[in-house]
Each structure stands twice: as structure tokens, then as C-alpha cells.
Design a protein around this nucleic acid. Structure first.
Lengths: 350, 350
DNA sequence: CTGAAAGCGCTTACAG
DNA sequence: CTGAAAGCGCTTACAG
């Protein structure tokens, strides 16, 4: 025979102790069962107007905020989505995260940002950490993890991948039309009369870097110009890379009148390199970037570039995630890349 | 008499169903009770070597990862700390967040970033959202919330505030020595022989903006120079603000040979303004910024500025939070601001 | 040193 | 339409 056990309240961490209002208190106050309150909260059932009212009042009166942690445990949802980014502090990712945050928050979800720093092991750790937090979904921005790895994670949780090509049941991917953007940039230079157009590449580990290069080449060939490997310099999407590439180009004594850089950061580094060697932009050489991030507008001279709304990219990724979560098919409509003519390019006079 | 109830397993969201390993499975596998596993996990009790071993093995074998959501509910901790930032996408905050993330992650905590966008209501919403997520602590980066509001939130949860002066039981605050930094910057200009030094201010809503201005003024006065309000232009910490300030300054026909801008972004905007008006940096005017964020190094010309390790700032904020969480007194040692001489300043020749 | 049991604040099949 | 009850995966007073 069991002795009757006196129930005990734990002192620490108890919601009531911390002055927090629980769903149970709301129920008592409204004279209904907790189940009913829960249903009203989740819109899970239609409830008589009277109870609806009573519960609404109680919620307002007590200032009840449902505890997402408990919801997560009980319902298997956490209303959080994990975001694997590469560096929070780069302007590119910063804007994307901003878009993700805005859109997710509007839907009551909270993003958990974790950086992978372009290291496969770190990305893996990040994903694991996020999964152990029981995120409802995962947004992956580029990165170095093999597609296979992503695909297998996608079996555990809905996933949207930005900047790669992946298909699957609860797996959605999309990205900018990098080829189109590069076409536009290169054509702009061609239309200005340039024919010796150098290209400073992005990090070849990124798909988008390859696509941009393909667009550059395509534009050249469409214009009947031979693709000249001597005019293609390696880069890594950083300013330092752009600077170094320009030095190399100048040292090689290859004639050129324009440079298309794989991203704005590269272009800005290139501009500094040119400045140091006394070559003037745009008088001596025209320069085009890619992305149109904040710094482009205030570089000297202001940089002609291709606008990609990175903010929109993030926002659309979040929207796609929300669709997946709701069991719908995501639809993404990203604005087409656009040329933003500023002062770093000009018509070739010679 | 109650009828015996057959227990039922819910199909969805059940850990076991999702192939997830639970603590209970570990316990069974190791032949001990769940309590013991929990204690081992938390280092809460000393356990016999044999059981310790058995549990360790089981954890490894099954690949057990404790569920933070359940831990949060049961133990009142979530191993997460909320971070209220202003804009994730600014270079300043981006670096700070990076520092926070690195340090927190190393301690097993995850940061939840929410932006306030410099709007008091949004900041309040952000804080509420974070609290309802039961974060273990709160890091607040600047913002517009009144000190009183912060202080009252600090009663619910440990808090560290960056860039303000606040004291309290579980409340710690610290920030850069902005006055010292501004002193250094201004002195550098003075040492170069400049006496007509303009100052483009930061957003006056920020304490640090005021401190920087005070440092500027102090340096002037220490040098026996009169503070001239005509040389102080309003700004807002953005490039656009810097550009506008320079235009105003030039239009006012106030003679000046140097500019100290309240932050790098302002300086970069100012540089563009000068470039547009054909005034050369540093030949005609010397220019100094503040912060030494990434763009400063590649601006044209590379910007002389004051180095503040924003990354360190974030990392130290996280460390302080960790101390608070462990019941220790935080100690913060931020590196002193340092002048980073580059190419935007030079000795006055005239 | 260790286990059984209650509890964290919700959600949701069951059973009216 | 609505309630009682079980369960989510842990932690932690209690009681040896």
C-alpha cells in the first residue's frame, strides 16, 4: 500500500513563483478548462462565443504570454527556425539575416542564427546544435557542406537552401540569377565601348562565383569577342583579393580598359589598387561590381554595380520556410538583377 | 473506482518516433535511473565510477543529445541568452554579434538575436519576445529604451548592457572609453599641426556620440585652442550624414584643414563629399574616423581612425553574461582605443 | 551514492 | 463544443 504523498511545489524556476502567468491560471480565471484555452490560442477548435470572450478577457487581464518552451515540448514545435549563415558580420549576410528576421518575426517565429565561417566542420556543428534545439525548420545560406549532407538533414526537418540546386520533399532551394546579373554588368561595359574587359573572380568554392564568371564569358562571346584567360584573375570575394588581382593585372602588362569584379568588396579592393598605381577610375579604367551593398554607394567614385536585393533574398527564404512549415509549396519570386549605373564606369573615348 | 487507463503514445512529435534518443533510453541502456543520468550530465552529483562509465558508454553508443527544450522546462534554464541589437546588418553590430556568438557558443549557450532598429517600441517587443522564450540572460546593445525600463527588466533576468551606465544586482554595464578615443584622434590631428579641426557628430541620442564629442573638445582645450561651435556639424553615424555635413561645412566657408568624424561611416561619407567638391584627402584636408571597421582599411585613401575592437566588445559582453549566470562578479578589460594611422591624414604644410 | 515520483507549462487523442 | 488525463523529455526535492 502506498502512503499518500503530499504534492510539493518546487521553489525555483516555477512560473508562478516568478510571477509568470500560466495557461492554467487563465483557465481558472475564465472558468474553463486548460484544453479550451489551448485550443483558442491555437485556433484549433471553434468555441462558444461566451467562453471565447471569457478567455480573451482573462488573457488580457492577466497579461498571459504562452511559454514557447512548454509549447515546444508538448506540441513538438518550437516556433523557431535555425539559420546557418557564414559570417554574421559580412555586409552580404547581414542584410540577408535582416530580411529573414523581419519576415519570420511577423509570423511569430524566431530565427536562431549560427555561423559556419565557411568551415565544413563548423557548419555541421551548427546544424547539430540547431537540431538539438528542436528548430521547426532550417535555412541554410550557401556554405561548404556537401549536398548529400544537406539532403540527409532535410529528412529530419524542413529545409530551404539558398544558393544551391537541391530538390526534395521538404527541401526547397533557390538563389539569385547570377549568370543574368553578370551578363548585364558585362554588357554595360561592352555598350560603353570596352573590349578589353578584365574579370576578377569570386571564391571558386561558391557556385555563384562560377555562375558570374559564366555570365561574363557569355556576354563576351555574344558580342563576338574572344574569351581571354589572361584577363581573368583569381579572387576570393574580399577587398584584399581585389587589390591583389589588380596588382597582378597591372604587372602582367595586359592592356585593359575595364574591370568587372565578382562582388562589390572585390571591386572596392580593386579601386584601391588602381588608386595606388595612379590609374584613375573611371577616366583610365571603368569598374563594375556586383551586389549593391551599402558600401558601393559611398565608395570613391561611387560604384556602378548590379543590384541584387540581398534583403529580399533573405525575406524570400523565410517566406519559403513558412510555406514549407504550413505544408504548402514554396513560391519564390526574386526581383531580376538590375544595373545600377554610378560613377565608376564611362564610355570609352579612345 | 477509476477504470484502468491504457497509456497511449502520441504518434507525432514523439522523440522516440522521430528516432531521437532520450535520456530515459540512455538510463535503460546503462542500467541506471534517469535521475542518475541527469546528474551525470549536469555534474550535479558524484557517481560511482562504474555507473559513470556505463552511462558515458551508453551516451556515446546511442548518440544521445539532451533536449534543451525539455531541460529548459524542467530546470528553468534554456541555455540561451537574448541579444537585443539595433541592426544586424551594420558592420558595427555585425562584428559585436560575432564576438558574442563565439564566446557564448564556447560555453554551450546559444544567442538569440533580435533587432530593435533604434525604435523604442521595437526594442520593447524584442525584449518581451526574448523573455517569453525564457532566455537565461539578456545582453542589450545600446538602444533607446529608458534606463528605467532596462532596470526593471533586469529584475526578471540577469542583464548586461553595452554602452550605458547602469548598476544593479544582476545588472552589469560597460562600454568603450569613447572620450579617450576621441582625445587620441583629435590629438593626432593637433600634432600634425592642424588647428582648424571640424567635428562631425554622431547621433546625439547615443551616449557614445556625446562622449566622443566631449573628447574632441577636451583635446582642443588642452591644446589651448578655443572650441568653435561653427566647426561642429550634426551627423547621425551614417555615410549620408557625413556627406551632408561636409557640404554644409564647405558652404559655410569656414576655414578648416582637418575633420574628425564620429565614426568611420561618417568619415567615409565625408570623404565622398570632399571628393565631389574637388578637395583632396589628405592634401587639402586630413580626415580621421572612429571604430576601424572593415571598410576603413579599403577606403580611398585608407582611413586613419581609432581602433576599438568591436569584436572584443561583443566577446566581453558575453563573458560578463556568463559570469553573471555563474553567480560571479563580471570583470571586463577592454583594450584601450588606439590610433591607426593610415593615409587620410598628414602634417599640415602651410 | 541513487531511485521513484512529482512537476515544469503546455498540447492533444479520447470520450463524451 | 469541451473536459479529464496522459504525455513531451528532462530536473530535483525527498527519502533512503
Amino acid at each position: 500500500m502506498k502512503a499518500p504523498v503530499t504534492p510539493r511545489k518546487r521553489s525555483p524556476a516555477t512560473a508562478a513563483a516568478a510571477g509568470v502567468v500560466t495557461l492554467e491560471m487563465v483557465a481558472r480565471h475564465a472558468g474553463v478548462s486548460p484544453s479550451t484555452v489551448s485550443r483558442i490560442l491555437n485556433g484549433t477548435a471553434t468555441v462558444s462565443a461566451a467562453k471565447q470572450q471569457a478567455v480573451d478577457d482573462a488573457i488580457r487581464l492577466l497579461g498571459f504570454r504562452p511559454n514557447p518552451v512548454a509549447r515546444g515540448l508538448a506540441g513538438g514545435r518550437t516556433l523557431s527556425v535555425g539559420v546557418v549563415t557564414q559570417t554574421i558580420s559580412s555586409p552580404f549576410y547581414g542584410e540577408a539575416l535582416h530580411g529573414i528576421e523581419d519576415r519570420l518575426e511577423a509570423a511569430g517565429y524566431i530565427p536562431l542564427f549560427v555561423s559556419g565561417h565557411w568551415q565544413e566542420p563548423e557548419e555541421r556543428k551548427a546544424l547539430e546544435a540547431l537540431l538539438s534545439r528542436r528548430v521547426d525548420g532550417l535555412i541554410v545560406l550557401a556554405g561548404r557542406l556537401p549536398n548529400e549532407a544537406l539532403r540527409s538533414y532535410a529528412q529530419e526537418v524542413p529545409m530551404v537552401v539558398v544558393g544551391r540546386q537541391l530538390q526534395g520533399p521538404k527541401l526547397f532551394s533557390f538563389g539569385f540569377d547570377n549568370r543574368a546579373g553578370a551578363l548585364i554588368a558585362t554588357r554595360h561595359l561592352l555598350e560603353c565601348g570596352h573590349t578589353r574587359i578584365a574579370y576578377i573572380a569570386g571564391d571558386p568554392a561558391h557556385e555563384d562565383a562560377l555562375e558570374r564568371q559564366a555570365g561574363y564569358r557569355e556576354a563576351l562571346e555574344q558580342a563576338g569577342l574572344a574569351f581571354d584567360p589572361a584577363l581573368v584573375l583569381p579572387g576570393d570575394y574580399t577587398e584584399a583579393g581585389g587589390l591583389m588581382a589588380v596588382n597582378r593585372l597591372l604587372d602582367a602588362r595586359q592592356p585593359f580598359t575595364a574591370i568587372f569584379a565578382a562582388n562589390d568588396q572585390t571591386a572596392i579592393g580593386a579601386a584601391l589598387g588602381l588608386y595606388r598605381r595612379q590609374v584613375r577610375v573611371p577616366d583610365d579604367v571603368s569598374l563594375v561590381g556586383f551586389d549593391d551593398l551599402a558600401p558601393a554607394k559611398f565608395s570613391i567614385p561611387p560604384l556602378t554595380t548590379v543590384r541584387q536585393s540581398v534583403y529580399e533574398l533573405g525575406a524570400e527564404a523565410a517566406t519559403a520556410m513558412l510555406a514549407l512549415l504550413a505544408g504548402r509549396e514554396p513560391e519564390v519570386k526574386l526581383p531580376q538583377p538590375q544595373l545600377v549605373p554610378r560613377e565608376s564606369t564611362r564610355r570609352l573615348l579612345r
